[in-house]
C-alpha cells in the first residue's frame, strides 16, 4: 500500500504541474519575437553559450558530499540498532563501534580541511 501511495503522490505532483501548465497555456496570451527568445543578459544580446566549464571548486564539494553522504547513509542502520544494543545491556559497545566509524569520517574531514579542500577559491 505504501508504494501505491508513493506512486499516487508522484502522479499527483505531475498532475499538478501538467494541470497548471495546461490552464496557463489555455488562458495565457501568446506572442513571439526573436528578442523574447534570447536568454536574459542585462538587456544586451547574449554572447556565447552559457554551457561552459565552471569553477572546479563546485565539483570538489560535490565529490566531498558524495563521499560523506554515503558514509552518513551507512549510519542509519546502526542508529536504528542502538536501542537494541542498550536493551541487550551492551550500550557502550555501540558507542565504541560507531566511534571507529566516525573516527574515519572525522579523519576524512580533517584531511579535507587541512589540505585546503574546504576553502572556497
Amino acid at each position: 500500500m505504501n508504494f501505491t501511495l508513493l506512486i499516487t503522490v508522484v502522479l499527483t505532483a505531475l498532475t499538478l504541474v501538467a494541470g497548471a501548465f495546461v490552464v496557463a497555456k489555455l488562458i495565457g496570451p501568446r506572442s513571439y519575437n526573436p528578442v523574447k527568445g534570447e536568454p536574459f543578459e542585462c538587456g544586451i544580446p547574449t554572447r556565447g553559450s552559457s554551457w561552459m566549464p565552471m569553477n572546479v571548486g563546485y565539483y570538489l564539494f560535490a565529490i566531498l558530499f558524495l563521499m560523506f553522504d554515503i558514509e552518513t547513509v551507512l549510519l542509519y542502520p546502526w542508529a536504528v540498532a542502538v536501542k537494541q544494543y542498550v536493551a541487550a545491556g551492551v550500550g557502550p559497545y555501540a558507542l565504541v563501534s560507531i566511534g571507529f566509524f566516525l573516527l574515519v569520517l572525522v579523519f576524512g574531514l580533517a584531511y579535507a580541511w587541512r589540505k585546503g579542500a574546504l576553502e572556497w577559491k
Binding site: Y59, I63, L66, E71, V73
Partner: peptide
C-alpha cells in the same frame, strides 16, 4: 556505498 566511492574517484 562502494559504487559511490568509485564514482567519486572516477569523477575526480
Amino acid at each position: 556505498g562502494v559504487a559511490a566511492a568509485e564514482t567519486a574517484v572516477a569523477l575526480a
